[in-house]
Design a protein around this nucleic acid. Sequence first.
DNA 1: AACTCTTACCCTCACGTATGGGTTAAATGT
DNA 2: ACATTTAACCCATACGTGAGGGTAAGAGTT
Lengths: 160, 160
Amino acid sequence: MVNLGKVLRIGELARLSGKTVRALHLYEELGLLLPVQRTRGRFRLYHPSAVARVEWIGKLQDASFSLTAIREFLDDVEQERAAPDAMARVRAVFEAKLHETREARTRLEKLEADLVASLVYLDGCRSCQPVHDSHECSECCINGHEPQTQPLLLAGLHSS
Amino acid sequence: MVNLGKVLRIGELARLSGKTVRALHLYEELGLLLPVQRTRGRFRLYHPSAVARVEWIGKLQDASFSLTAIREFLDDVEQERAAPDAMARVRAVFEAKLHETREARTRLEKLEADLVASLVYLDGCRSCQPVHDSHECSECCINGHEPQTQPLLLAGLHSS
DNA sequence: AACTCTTACCCTCACGTATGGGTTAAATGT
DNA sequence: ACATTTAACCCATACGTGAGGGTAAGAGTT
């Protein structure tokens, strides 16, 4: 946008990609991102395609690849262009990640249910608030109400 | 199991709760877990209910509460037994977490779709492998195939 | 003797934050 | 036309964070 011509400075790249300057420095340290050149004063200058590169890194991070894993991933692809199993490797990695993701989603769904159960339980508490003062209500809600039915997320509050 | 009577040592507590000794030490440093007493030789001795406490900590961690957040949570509940809004606070925290969780699940679902799309794309690649040698296929699969349709998770591989 | 526990220290990852200075581009002054 | 100032930007370096993992030397327990 600002640079109609060719290059971006790190701040622009940061804004366009949604990352911080610090993060981009780190990516360079780890060999994930290189400026096409530097100014005389050592300012980094990036090709516009760096935005896509950084966004790609972000995508893989969302997929919970570590930065070093992303680095290995790049190495694999760059150095094994001639190997017959390059794509097979990528496939394997993605398939493994897909399984992880499905498991993570299942865990999140369980957590959601736990949270809802806890909120329902606390709703029950609120209805007994008018009956006695709030000190007793705390006792009632945290310690009472038949301990077995207490949601897991509230079960640790009694024994300090 | 081993201690029929009263107390657990840290290793037993670790085994029963599925955490490491190191983690339990950390919880103590942060004020989340206290031994009922120590032996003359400073070995920590825990009440059996500590197992539930540790499991509760784990549950909240699964809900992506940080340990310091859990600490604040405990403070809130312990120090505000007399305050009328103690339960309201707990509710608020849980409701916020529920929203976060739903958002996280949505993100995971998007990620799952991305992964599936990438795998489908790679399947397409594999079908063109017999046509030419693997070097060219790598070029084809990573750089070719109409760039716009390339899944996001594969889009960063061309511009090194 | 064999096992468990203690404190203490360093390692990891993906950055955040702080320091103290250098660079660049634009606006102003002469 | 050239010089200076200014604001914004950037540099390298180093230390801090969270939630532990790992290891070691020594001391306690059975």
